[in-house]
Simulated assay, not measured.
Amino acid sequence: MNNDVGARLITRRPLPYLLLLMVLVPLFTKAQSQLSPQAKVSLITVGPGDELYSSFGHSALWIYDPVYQLDRAYSYGTFSFQEGNFYVKFLRGTLPYTISVNPLMPQFYYWQQENRSVKEQELNLSLPEKQRLYDFLETNLLPQNREYQYKFFYDNCSTRLADAVKAAMGDRLIFPGYVHETLSFRQWIDRYAYEQKPWSDFGMDLAIGSPSDEVATPEQATFLPDNLSAAFADAKIQTDSLEVPLVMDTRELYTATPEVERGWLTPKIFFWVLAVLIAAFTIWQIKTERLNFVLDKILFTVVGLTGWLILGLWFGTNHGVTEWNWDILWAFPLWVPIVFMFSKTKKPAWFSWYLIAYGVMLLAATGNLLKHNYVLIPILLILVLRVYYLNNSLEKIPSS
């Protein structure tokens, strides 16, 4: 949901967009202290894009005043690639995000070129409420206020817009949140990434822990822009005598064209094929009594390094959703360095007990399958097969 449009316009399509922004920004972004009665406020919802950062869509609040030629689309999903130690901060969850403002049309053309649907929902706010919302956003835009600690599930470019509208409308707003479905945070992510970006989905499933398996409340579910849009469509305004819809008009500004089918090599196919090949190789090794641990050295090195990565995300980051990650049961970090402690001629005296303990952990890891990516099934089968082979083979080698 990150939407650093300015940075990407400059880096991906430099000259035309840079010139366009240089011309339009001074003309259309001059802030006014007061809005006219003709001003309108809209929620802009942008569909998912091809890049990982745009997989879940984007939201912005657009305030347009034809009298003062005011054109300001406010986004809370902006970050800068020029930030010092960018990738370290991004991985640790300490990368600062900010609110930014730009005219809508340059952004709209950018989204259109990326083939992302764009929808406008004009809000039925009174003039005082529009003014309060405008003042709220402009106050947030001040240098001392614009930066905030981004939390993907709990405090992001979508949830901040709902907070802004609530602050402007107070008790008049009846906002139940997204009430059409009840899913966990992980299930919501899977819905967006599983089909279109299966490898990214697999990686995210590995990275996030137990907090992501909590069921999102209707309000928490609005961390996704599409859900926020649906929640706004359901929201009401309490007047003296009746309730009226928050959204007074909806316009589809651009509808994305269907994408071509994506590559066939998904994690599910890859790991099932790998499981079949390793099963055949393991059976051949056992029947021919071959002692060769090259495959195990490679396999459990990858497993161990994955475990250290999970451990780093658990204790070394500030995301809040990478803690209590039980994938560490199968991706056990201590395989590195333990995998280098045995060979065809020697093994540690305690290694058999280690294999038994790891087998128990693999059994415990199957409990994760009910709420996790089912790609774990072939992965666990591979690990069970190789632990069985190791246990049988190393029994013939004297302890050191």
Rank of each mutant, 00 (worst) to 15 (best):
G57N: 09
L141C: 02
V46H: 00
T159Y: 14
A364W: 07
H180P: 01
Q38P: 00
D201T: 10
P37E: 01
R72G: 06
L21Q: 15
H319A: 04
V375L: 00
P14Q: 04
F90P: 09
K236T: 02
I278D: 01
K297P: 02
T29V: 02
V294K: 14
K119A: 09
L123C: 02
L291F: 12
G209H: 03
F152K: 05
V5F: 12
T257L: 12
M204R: 10
L380C: 08
E395W: 08
L125W: 00
S59K: 11
E259G: 13
E252Q: 14
Y110W: 11
Y87H: 04
A73V: 02
W324G: 08
F202S: 00
E138D: 13
L18T: 09
P96W: 11
N318H: 15
V260A: 13
T282S: 13
Y374I: 11
L224Q: 07
F185S: 05
L313P: 03
R386D: 01
D163I: 11
P378G: 07
K89W: 10
K236Y: 03
G209T: 00
P267L: 07
L127M: 06
V336H: 01
A349S: 15
L329M: 05
E243D: 03
E83L: 10
A193K: 13
N373L: 05
V5I: 14
P103I: 10
V88L: 13
L21C: 15
R72H: 11
N156L: 11
E129K: 08
W308R: 01
R12I: 03
G84P: 02
P258D: 00
L370A: 06
V25P: 03
V41W: 00
S352W: 08
Y110S: 10
V41L: 03
V5L: 09
S100W: 07
D249K: 15
T257Y: 12
K89L: 11
K40Y: 01
L274N: 04
S126R: 06
G316P: 00
F28M: 12
Q34N: 12
Y254P: 02
W284Q: 11
S158V: 12
V360C: 02
D4C: 14
E214G: 12
Y17L: 06
P176A: 05
V101I: 02
L390V: 11
E147Y: 11
S42E: 04
T282G: 03
D296H: 01
S158Y: 09
S126I: 03
K30T: 14
L133D: 04
E122G: 01
N325C: 02
P267D: 07
A280Y: 09
Q121G: 04
P398L: 09
Y76W: 14
D171M: 06
L27S: 06
I356E: 05
Q238R: 04
K166Q: 15
A207T: 05
D4T: 14
F315E: 14
S399D: 11
L21G: 15
S54C: 04
W111R: 12
L24P: 00
V67Y: 09
V387N: 05
Q107P: 07
S54E: 11
N3R: 14
Q187V: 05
Y110L: 10
T250K: 01
G57Q: 08
T266I: 09
Y87Q: 14
